[in-house]
Design a protein around this nucleic acid. Structure first.
Lengths: 331, 331
DNA sequence: CTGAAAGCGCTAACAC
DNA sequence: GTGTTAGCGCTTTCAG
């Protein structure tokens, strides 16, 4: 089939261990034979077989990434950060998509382990996984957007509570009176934390926390649309909405525009994430930025560190700061 | 280290080929021993080593994908189609990002070959690559958004000329008189083909093709903004612009909105791609849709076919139909 | 400086 | 049915 180290050895009349040494820049080969070997390898179109190498060296220079969705621009940017950083460090990424399906995720994890990846980055499809699930992962791994409560593994995330706090505080400062929260999946840890920040800000400013102003639907445009409808037609005089993410915010803006609510005077809207499209002229969404690329980059770097430390690694948490981006949907 | 087939064999007092057979559902093992083996494997937490298996079977069930950018939502959706389909067929994806850098791309290709992927999907960082470059790729591979001119390999793409034709024809039919083209990278094949469609439609309708109405900049928002500025301030009375892609169109809309051009009456705008955000209420871009998910799906399926046919495979081209999506930026 | 040989974990052909 | 054995292509002692 393809040319091997043995073929080169034979054609040059040397032993194949010498070829191996020469090709890997290892000491113990005379300059002359080394050059001959390298040249011959090139001439014969030799391509090292990484599987064979991995089998003996017990590492693959490959990292597995399991995320729910890559078409989603949030994960797109995070993944870009992961892959760029991996490449810079000589690692290649096996990318798996769970489509938010826990069973698919499990299968992917199994495959990655069988492929003997050097480490794994995982954004779980559901948030309420128990430690046993993670304990099966017998390689270094990091939870993407992990949560504080879990001490059984390392994670990287943005300070969601702080983000929620910043968003709500800003709305209060801009003079909005009845601030609602329009979230996505209720149980999602990121969601819960943002709600906490929201509540904290309200309390700190002497506002009453009204449970019916905290609503949940989907992390989608239509989810936002429905929530806006609910909130704006309730008896409370909602004049500002903090959306659980930017896509929800867009749904809210849609509802507002089609139902005569003037943004930002009559209704203030603030999002979360700062997706690429938030800054478009036609949208100009005020939002809390997550450093998405950095999130990916740091996650990979933390993982690399764990791979290096190997046995004596300890669980770490890395928490990134969110940032308020003021645009035109708040007054 | 981790438990192997031999460990299981030893613990059960059978030969390890029997274990292999049992675990792989191969005939030639009594039901009883098979069950014992499977149970024991589970108990010991056995994880097959895919490298060892790949080494002997000479296939990895892994496919390499090299694209320029994954944060970009076009590639994001295409990649989602690729990965979903790969997973359905038991393949895993090694994803590499070239960042539009030809040298990085070359390095990725080399790595993928060394990892002995079963096939490769490639969207080249530049369009003017010669056949020799491709001839080095000694596994089945498909060019994503390939071009007609090249017969040295298989490719999948959307009929760009037809899309350009449809867009321009529609603008003509809606009564626009001076239709300009605002493109991205000039040399890009997809761009050239769209221009051809544009020209064809103009000619077919007895319109004059004016070279100064065909302009190029970047496939970005600011590229579109600049082109709009140029075109709308030229002596020609441009009343419609066909943008090389949706992002350019958004830049054009931005310029129009900030400089008092009424869309769609005073200025018609049509894009290309139909990115997720094109249909937002605040944008409502008329555009030519590329079936992005399908593009990825079909590319992978074609690749699988080539992997199956192996030696007696022939180069194929698959060309998908674009579709006109009418929204609010054309009258 | 170079060669011989063991072995990484597994599959598959060949015996029994 | 089950065991034995020969590799897959490479790295890495251990001799010389």
């Amino acid at each position: 089939m393809s040319v091997t180290i043995k073929d080169i050895a034979k054609s040059l009349g040397v032993s194949y261990s010498t070829v191996s040494r020469a090709l890997n820049n290892k000491p113990g080969v005379s300059k002359k034979t080394r050059e001959r070997i390298i040249e011959q390898a090139k001439k014969m179109g030799y391509q090292p077989n990484d599987m064979a190498r991995g089998l003996v060296k017990k590492r693959t220079k490959t990292i597995g990434v399991v995320i729910p969705d890559i078409a989603n621009s949030f994960f797109g940017e995070v993944t870009q950060g992961i892959i760029d950083t991996a490449n810079e460090n000589g690692y290649t990424i096996l990318l798996c998509i769970s489509n938010w399906d826990f069973d698919i995720e499990k299968k992917h994890l199994k495959t990655l382990l069988e492929k003997r990846v050097d480490g794994i980055i995982l954004k779980p499809a559901k948030d309420d996984v128990d430690e046993k699930y993670f304990s099966k992962i017998n390689v270094p791994f990091i939870l993407l957007e992990g949560w504080q409560g879990d001490k059984s593994c390392s994670y990287v995330k943005v300070d969601n509570e702080k983000g929620g706090y910043m968003a709500t505080k800003y709305l209060i400062e801009r003079g909005y009176q009845n601030i609602a929260y329009a979230g996505g999946k209720k149980e999602a840890h990121s969601n819960l934390e943002r709600v906490e920040g929201y509540i904290k800000a309200l309390k700190e400013h002497g506002r009453k926390v009204e449970r019916e102003l905290i609503r949940h639907n989907d992390f989608t445009v239509s989810g936002g649309y429905k929530l806006a409808e609910e909130l704006l037609n309730s008896h409370n005089k909602v004049d500002a909405i903090f959306a659980g993410n930017d896509v929800i915010a867009l749904g809210i803006l849609h509802y507002a525009a089609t139902h005569g609510y003037k943004v930002p005077d009559q209704l203030g809207v603030i999002g979360f994430d700062d997706i690429f499209y938030a800054e478009f002229h036609q949208i100009q969404l005020t939002t809390i930025r997550q450093p998405k690329y950095l999130l990916g980059k740091n996650t990979l770097e933390l993982l690399l560190q764990e791979i290096r430390d190997d046995e004596d690694r300890v669980n770490k948490a890395m928490i990134l700061e969110p940032k308020l981006i003021v645009r035109k949907t708040t007054r």
